[in-house]
Design a protein around this nucleic acid. Structure first.
Lengths: 324, 324
DNA sequence: TTGTACGCGTTATCAG
DNA sequence: CTGATAACGCGTACAA
């Protein structure tokens, strides 16, 4: 059922049908009524592809993430989706698995699909990749953090501040040995946290100790815990790493020997036994915000880059009282 | 940069460019080389919208889910994505929040966007909605469970069998009081589990006791736990409900008084303290399978409906030894 | 082997 | 106020 058919059925031209469809003025009530009736009778659905070709607006936003399976990205997608839904946009979702060349090919596809805007959470902040991003023609929001030299607008998490808050928190508790369990090497966000941790440790005359996991799973946390010797406190780069480690310490019955904190504030973190002290980044909200930003970009409205807030939730994992 | 431009730049017709692009035979090597050079020099990206309009193939799959924020749906999306990626399809993702009329409007948008296929996880199995689904023209796979009267192919989880396995497991342990904590009323999958539970309980001369939560969150689990009196075993419809409840029992120091099991086998369930006995449905795989099925449907290959396997993981929550 | 011309379903322009 | 008609960028008969 296309416009032509509707036009014939209603005994008018397709131009008129188009006018009715798009609520244009200059349409007689009689004609409008007639067309609307036929439209309803035959359950007409406009072909948005044809429309997109003509108007050069696809009403599609490309969303490119490194790992949709991780809770935080699911929350982000949730937020983006809720914003787009309201504004009549759809989301094309792609997962580049942390592989930058894969990401670039995904971006090419977005371009080919004529998306109106893009939200991209990169894991690579090399100058080359930033340059690649900068020269992108399509409205593009970088989500996660703002790499050096980026000219696109970004929605970034306060990784450095959050890291400092946790490390300082441990220092204030009197900890001298604070071990950092970091994300896999090569991950931009991971490096941000490692660097912030290292800097603050050194500034306080403490020795940084960093362990890297191979991938971001509970199991990796569990495994890395085996390698960590005695230490007073552990700052895990992500909650799921912290939780995996905690499980190992529980199994070993040494959980009471460590202060542990993470970043993410997963919804399960406060349920865990012991509950995990963590920094909350409100991922859902970050999705909403970046959604609004691309839309503003698309509509030519000015947008300013933004750094999201964070909040530390203090829980049992940093209190001795959880010891049983 | 469109085909016309490339053609002019290479001094050939756009038909020839099209041939080169689509690897058609009947193209002289010389012309091919020439065109390929220009293609590369100007970084040509085909306009897939125009292509879609012409070929009536959008290379888009619509994925409609009730709650992308839930881990299991994130896993499903992960699986779908990995399949589609390989076959050159993109995914349009929409979240209908468990609201059927919302879902129907999402499906309309998919139709308008000319998606080649749809994967839909409904939460409403009423005859009216099934009828609505049945009359859909676009290749459509129902994911989750097969409602009565469905004529579309489906990928379904063995909800009934899984439920029976858990209930029987408790019965075999000698439990007489087995309480079921169910998903919110009106949720199709939830009803499936409630019914299977109720039937098996009655068959064994046991009294079914069902509590419904208002939404699927850890907090709801925590809250409902307060209302549950003495009971030997608890079968939670979802792991996150079970985990929330467990946290309450931990707080009350009554965790040792209950056997608890769930369905989902979330990756955190085996890390939890105590670890949670649960049924695994391999959501990631279900996504891959349904992805393959729509593609087969699209390519006119025969597809058969499929019921996924499941596996019970027995853990500390159903062993007294986790008692401390 | 290569090029021309038309059609896909819309919107936009321009007459009438 | 309404109706032809030309784009939009691509594939594909058909012609050369």
């Amino acid at each position: 059922m296309k416009m032509d058919d509707i036009a014939r059925l209603a005994g008018v031209s397709k131009a008129s049908v188009s006018r009715v469809l798009n609520d244009k003025p200059n349409v007689s009530d009689k004609l409008r009524k007639k067309v609307e009736q036929v439209l309803k009778d035959y359950d007409y659905q406009p072909n948005l592809v044809a429309q997109a070709l003509n108007t050069k607006k696809s009403k599609l936003i490309g969303v490119l993430l490194p790992a949709i399976g991780l809770d935080l990205f699911a929350d982000i997608v949730d937020g983006i989706s809720s914003t787009l839904q309201v504004h009549g946009y759809e989301m094309i979702l792609a997962d580049f698995k942390g592989d930058t060349s894969q990401a670039m090919s995904n971006l090419d596809v977005f371009r080919s699909k004529q998306v109106d805007g893009i939200i991209y959470f990169p894991t690579d902040n090399s100058p080359e990749h930033v340059a690649y991003i900068n020269q992108f023609k399509i409205p593009l929001i970088i989500l996660g953090h703002e790499p050096e030299g980026l000219t696109k607008k970004s929605v970034s998490f306060p990784d450095v501040k959050a890291t400092e808050e946790i490390v300082q928190y441990f220092i204030d508790m009197g900890c001298k040995e604070i071990t950092h369990v970091a994300m896999p090497k090569g991950h931009a966000v991971g490096k941000l946290r490692v660097d912030a941790y290292t800097a603050l440790m050194k500034k306080n005359g403490l020795k940084p100790i960093v362990y890297y996991v191979d991938d971001i799973t509970y199991e990796s946390g569990y495994e890395i815990a085996k390698k960590i010797g005695k230490t007073q406190a552990i700052f895990a780069a992500m909650d799921r790493l912290a939780l995996g480690m905690m499980r190992y310490f529980i199994d070993e019955d040494t959980i009471a020997d460590y202060y542990i904190a993470g970043i993410d504030n997963m919804s399960v973190s406060k349920m865990f036994n012991p509950s995990l002290t963590s920094i909350d980044f409100d991922y859902y909200h970050s999705g909403k915000v970046s959604g609004e930003m691309v839309l503003n970009l698309i509509n030519g409205k000015g947008v300013a880059k933004i750094v999201l807030p964070y909040k530390l939730y203090e829980r049992e994992s940093t209190r001795r009282k959880h010891v049983r």
